[in-house]
Design a binder for these strands. Structure first.
Lengths: 341, 341
DNA sequence: AGCATGTGCTAAATGGATTTAGCAAAGCGG
DNA sequence: CCGCTTTGCTAAATCCATTTAGCACATGCT
C-alpha cells in the first residue's frame, strides 16, 4: 500500500552511482562515456527494483510525453471509427506511445477544447480523424506538434492519409468486366453533389472518377444511374424496387455496402437470384457484407491500415507533406459470377 | 513559433503576486485568505495571457493527471466497443478528464504492459472493459488507483457495470406475450454452456434465467430450442432453415441480432412473412436491426450508458462496491405484430 | 501597553526526471 | 616532471505547479 514508486534516485543509490549516470544509461544516450560496469550496475538495479520512469516528470523536462491524441468528430456513429482507432492504437503501441482519444462531434468549441486538452498534456502529435471524409476544420490554435489528417484533409496541415478511392473505383468496374459483365450495369448511389466533391470530400469524387474512367476504358456506359442523397439501406431498397419495375439489370454497382444491403432486400423480394441474375459489387467491406447471402463482393475501406499509417507518419522522423493513399482491397465474396479464370 | 507556453510564473508576475497566490487562486482553494482584488488580478492576468496549466508539472506534484485509462481486450472486433468507448469518452469529457485507450487482445503480456503504461502516466483510474462479457483477467500488479470493470467482472475489483440481462431476458418474453403470442415460440441460440455461465460470463446466463422465468410465469414452454456455439448470422440461417423443414413456428426468440439476421434470410427464402407469419424478438440492438425489413424489435445493449456509468463510478468520490446493472431498453420495430393496446 | 489572533501574502521546498557544466584521476607526449 | 587530453563520473540547474511553513502587519481585548 504505502510503498511509493521506485524513482531514479533509488536506482542510482542501489547502483552506487549518480542519478545523472542512471538517467543517461537508462535512456540509452549514445555519446556517454560511462563504463560497461556502470551500465550493468544500473540496469541490474533498475530491474531488481522494477523501476519505471515517471512519465510526468520526464514530460515536464523534455516536453515529450510519448503520447499522441486522436481527435475525431465521431467515434461511434460510424463503424469506421473503430477500425481507424484500432489501427492507430496498434501502431502507437508498437512505437511505445499511448493514445488519447477525444471526440468533438464536429463542434468547433469542443474541437478547441480537445486540442487544448491534448496540448496541455504535451502530446507528441495530433491526429485529426474525420468519420465522414471531408475537408476538416481544425481550430486556429498555435499547434507546435506534428499533425496528420486521417480520412480527411486540411489546408493547414498537408499530411493526410486517405483511401485510394480512384483506384478503388476502377477496381469495382474492372471486377464486373472481368466477370464477363459488359452491359446492363446500373450505378446505385449516384449523387451529383458528391461526385463534384461539393458535399463530401474529394475522396468520394475520386471514387466516381475511377468508376467513370474505368467504364470509359472498357467502352461501357451505365444502363441507369440511381441517385440518392443518403447511402442507407432503405434508399438502396427503394431505388432498386423502382428500378426493377422498368428494367432488369445484369449488375448493380453500389456506392456502399448499405445501399447494396437494401438492394439485396429488393432483389430477394422480387425473387431475383444473385449472382446468377444480378451481380453486385460495392464499397466499404462493412461487417454487413459478410453476413449477406451470397456474401457481397466489395472494395474495402482499409481503415486499420489508414489508422496505423497515420500514426507512423506522425511519429516518423522525416515527414514529407503528401497525401498517403492507402490501397482499397478487393474482398471477393459470392455476389459476382465466377467467370474469369 | 518560438513563443513558449505561458507559465504560472508569468501570470503571477503580471498580476504582481507570487506564484503561490496565483496557484491557490487558480486552483480555487477554499480556505485561502487572499483578497478579492488578488483574485481578480490573477484571473485577469491568466485570461489575458491565455494561461493553461502544464498538466505534467501538476501531475508530478499532485500525482493526479485528470486522465483515465480504458483498457479493453478488443476495440474494433466487436461493434460494442465503440459504444462503450463513446459513452466513457463523453462522461470523461464532462468530468474534464482525458481518456487513454489501450487494447490488449486479451493477451496477459499486453495487459501487463497496458496497466504499467497507464500507471506510469499517473492515471486517476482504470477501466477494464471486456468485449465478451466474462470474468476478466486483471494482471496481478500493484494498482493504487480506482478500478471499474466494464461489461465484465473480476474477483479483485468488485465494482462493475453490466447490462441488466435478467430483466432484459424477461422483457423479450413479455414482448411476445403482450403481442398475443403464446405458443410455437422457438428459442434460437440456446447454448448449454453459456446458459450455465461456463463459457461466457454470468451475464449471458442471467439473460437465460430471465427468459426462463418469464416463460414460466406466463405458463409457456418453447416449442423448440435451437443450439449453436456461435451467434453469427449463418448459424441463425442454418438453424432456421432446418427448423422450417419440420415445423412452422409462430415466433423466434433470438439470442442476438445476428442470429436474427440469419433467421430473416431463411424466412425470406421460404417466403414466410414477418411479423404476420413469424414474429421475431432479439437482443443487442445492433446497427443491423434497423436495416432489416421489417425492422427488428430487439432488447438493446445499453453500451453508451454503460461506458458513461463506468466513468462516473470511477470518478465518484464514494464508490460503493456493487454491480451496476444498466437497463436494457426495448427497441420497438416491426418484427412483432401490433396486438397489444 | 502587551499579547493573542487574524489577515494577506510569499519564500522555499517539493515532485522525478533530464541536462549542462565541470571535477578528479588517469594516460600520454616530450 | 609538466601540461594536455581523455575517461568516468557527478553536482546542480532545470522543467512548472503545488504546498508547507511562516513573515509582516493590522486588529481586538484587557
Amino acid at each position: 500500500m504505502g510503498k511509493k514508486r521506485v524513482t531514479l534516485a533509488d536506482v542510482a543509490r542501489l547502483a552506487g552511482l549518480s542519478t545523472t549516470a542512471a538517467s543517461m544509461i537508462l535512456t540509452g544516450r549514445p555519446d556517454t562515456r560511462l563504463s560497461p560496469e556502470a551500465h550493468k550496475k544500473v540496469h541490474d538495479a533498475a530491474a531488481s527494483l522494477g523501476y519505471r520512469p515517471n512519465v510526468a516528470a520526464r514530460a515536464l523536462r523534455t516536453d515529450k510525453s510519448r503520447s499522441i491524441a486522436f481527435i475525431s468528430d465521431y467515434v461511434a456513429t460510424t463503424r469506421f471509427a473503430s477500425g481507424l482507432i484500432r489501427g492507430a492504437l496498434s501502431a502507437a503501441e508498437q512505437a511505445k506511445h499511448v493514445m488519447l482519444v477525444l471526440e468533438t462531434g464536429g463542434e468547433p468549441a469542443r474541437e478547441i477544447q480537445a486540442v487544448e486538452t491534448a496540448l496541455d498534456r504535451q502530446v507528441d502529435g495530433l491526429i485529426f480523424a474525420a468519420m465522414r471524409a471531408r475537408e476538416v476544420f481544425v481550430p486556429d490554435l498555435a499547434i507546435n506538434v506534428p499533425v496528420v489528417m486521417l480520412n480527411g484533409t486540411s489546408a493547414r496541415f498537408p499530411i493526410s492519409v486517405l483511401p485510394a478511392e480512384y483506384e478503388g473505383g476502377r477496381r469495382a468496374v474492372e471486377l464486373l468486366v472481368s466477370s464477363g459483365i459488359t452491359k446492363d450495369i446500373v450505378l446505385l448511389g449516384h449523387n451529383a453533389k458528391q461526385e463534384e466533391g461539393l458535399f463530401r470530400s474529394e475522396t468520394i469524387s475520386r471514387r466516381f472518377m475511377g468508376i467513370r474512367d474505368a467504364m470509359a476504358d472498357a467502352g461501357l456506359t451505365f444502363a441507369a444511374e440511381l441517385s440518392c442523397w443518403n447511402w442507407e439501406p432503405n434508399f438502396g431498397y427503394d431505388l432498386t424496387r423502382k428500378l426493377l419495375k422498368t428494367q432488369r439489370p445484369r449488375a448493380l454497382l453500389c456506392l456502399n455496402d448499405r445501399l447494396a444491403f437494401g438492394a439485396y432486400q429488393a432483389l430477394g423480394e422480387a425473387g431475383i437470384r444473385t449472382p446468377e441474375d444480378v451481380a453486385l459489387v460495392s464499397f466499404d467491406n462493412d461487417e454487413l457484407a459478410s453476413y449477406l447471402r451470397p456474401g457481397l463482393t466489395t472494395i474495402g475501406l482499409p481503415h486499420e491500415e489508414m489508422g496505423s499509417r497515420a500514426v507512423e507518419l506522425l511519429l516518423a522522423p522525416s515527414r514529407i507533406p503528401q497525401a498517403n493513399l492507402i490501397d482499397m482491397p478487393v474482398v471477393m465474396r459470392g455476389s459476382l459470377p465466377r467467370n474469369c479464370s
